[in-house]
Design a binder for these strands. Structure first.
Lengths: 344, 344
DNA sequence: TAATTTTGCTAACACGTGTCAGCATAGAAG
DNA sequence: CTTCTATGCTGACACGTGTTAGCAAAATTA
């Protein structure tokens, strides 16, 4: 490994041409006439020497790093985002690789973000940023967005003109709710997690309500309960729902993590899932399939989210601005056992 | 954002000094006499302009990228490593940040690794590599190790002289086994997952056996079953174990994922955990706490593994070679309900 | 006063690449 | 034969920084 590094002039010497020609050949520069013979010689020399251009030198002269930063900025929902990070990151990477971009992993916690963003962007460590776990009260990110920095949100921030990739929450909630209706349920409750801090919760609630109305079912406030990000908050919410008269026969829960606690409450109260109560969750966390009974839920396309975010960001960096800047991805209903067989 | 980039000579001009002086001050170059007054002026100018040196230029001239690559190379055990990736990566990042290193996320699947390693190292995208999920049959990695490339394995590869960070599997298995013995069990079985491809399985089996012997208990081959990486293989293994006569009263399972399937088998056969059968797992995957009953298991210090790997790699890069190159981290027994109350 | 050392700073080079302007040579056109 | 154009290649500059060698002025010593 202490073997001297191979440079472009080594390739040039071996091929008997100038360094410039090597660059033209290896980068496939358009409009440059290179004879087939020379091109061949250069390619062979490069392969023989296992030449790879120095990334820093190339970046310095081109002004492009071809690196995008994946910045984590989560707060309480850590547990959820953690479960998806591997897939999202792989999506980001694979998409970026298509454009010969690399991915820098850079968590920047809210507390000690002191200058980290400047370092990343002004210091030219990355060409742009994918921001995971955006928060409305994040001053530093607001500044970046206003400065028109190349940023793509993984998620959503209301009243902000910024590119983003998210799941179509309204549509997804409609899928879940209408599935329960199709099963014959008419008393359908919902547990919404953290609608204030997390706009997705609100959107999912909206989808649920609209679907009920579209099917001529009334929206009963007693059948809507709120939770935070934790399982135990789901337990609490479910106990409240089950006091409603008449009892709901099905509940749509806007987060699988919350659903875990809710299911526990149901079973502790002596009810059976799905016979006494059908349940549909949201997220399809890896654990969902192992729950008892296995949870019917809305599958979050984590890999696709990562892919789309990187794709959008790179187009943004290259100033193909005319691009749709708010991507909404479709989800899928994964039917397992918790929603029960048809009631009809 | 189209605002012109700030360079070191901007700072120099504003402070009324040369670019060289700016560099000396900002990098705290030792042995350089700078008057307190000048130093102050430079620091203020830099802060006022929000100056951050261009990463590429600095890398080009110093020859150090100050980036380390986190390379994923997993195969079947994806599910397991995925559960820990977020924590490991955070550990890697935080440790690296201590040395002003960045972290590049670079999965390189076995199939299409065509030149990716060369690109990374020869192309000087990174100074070194942390390799997650090393496989003994990985030719490309063998070559890198023999070429003495700066690599740290996250895990272990037998008969290879290469730096690595792993958990003390023998010691951990002893903790698990002796805990069951302390609870009063004498018929203790074990399910080993994939000992052939995954050396950790073998080590855990060894720890189990030695502990039995140390306590004067015989090792009964009928009480040892093998599984792969999946839950369903655990189901199969457990069914086999429960046919032993007399039945084991406790089982140590070398993987939580496998334990999930095993527990399912136990309950399907009508036995109760932990009354009829106590269970201790290994890994402490996030899901373990939600199982029924919650799984007693060995906690894998994912964050610590990441931290240690980055620390080791950076020391290796800086040629502090005298460093211990095979780090073994301690684990912790997390007692929940599946191991039962004391039998004594 | 003259010689020497110390202090505080700077000019100039190097890192390895991409790329613009230009230069021979060969062929075509006049 | 001369002039022009296309072909195939190259010399030289630029990117922004770290760093070595060195220089003037001030301080110290002789």
């Amino acid at each position: 490994m202490t073997r001297r590094r191979v440079h472009s002039w080594d390739v040039a010497n071996l091929a008997g041409v100038s360094r410039t020609t090597v660059s033209f050949v290896l980068n496939n520069v358009p409009g440059m006439r290179i004879s087939a013979d020379t091109r061949q010689r250069v390619l062979e020399a490069a392969k023989q020497l296992d030449y790879h251009p120095d990334a820093s030198a190339r970046r310095l002269v081109t002004g492009k790093t071809s690196i995008l930063g994946y910045v984590e900025r989560q707060s309480p929902e850590h547990a959820l985002s953690d479960a998806f990070l591997p897939q999202v990151l792989r999506g980001v990477h694979d998409s970026a690789a298509t454009y010969n971009f690399e991915v820098l992993f850079a968590p920047i916690p809210l507390e000690l973000s002191k200058g980290r963003f400047s370092r990343l962007l002004q210091g030219h460590h990355v060409d742009g940023i994918i921001l995971s776990g955006p928060r409305s009260d994040d001053q530093e990110v607001h500044q970046l967005i206003e400065a028109n920095a190349p940023i793509v949100l993984q998620g959503h921030l209301p009243n902000m003109q910024v590119a983003s990739v998210d799941v179509d929450n309204v549509k997804s909630a409609k899928m879940a709710t209408s599935h329960l209706i199709r099963k014959g349920h008419t008393r359908i409750g919902m547990i919404v997690h953290s609608p204030e801090a997390f706009t997705a919760g609100e959107a999912r609630l909206q989808g649920y309500q609209e679907t009920l109305e579209e099917h001529g079912l009334s929206v009963d406030p007693d059948l809507i309960a709120f939770a935070s990000f934790t399982s135990s908050s789901g337990e609490h919410a479910m106990r409240k729902l089950l006091k409603a008269i008449p009892r709901p026969t099905a509940v749509f829960i806007s987060s699988d993590t919350v659903a875990i606690g809710a299911m526990q409450a149901v079973q502790e109260l002596g009810y059976h899932i799905p016979q006494d109560l059908a349940i549909v969750g949201f997220d399809d966390i890896p654990m969902s399939v192992y729950l008892k009974p296995p949870l019917t839920t809305i599958h979050l396309p984590a890999y696709g989210i990562g892919w789309a975010a990187a794709d959008l960001l790179i187009h943004l960096i290259d100033k193909d601005d005319a691009l749709e800047t708010n991507v909404l991805l479709d989800t899928e209903l994964v039917v397992r056992e918790s929603c029960g067989a048809s009631r009809i």
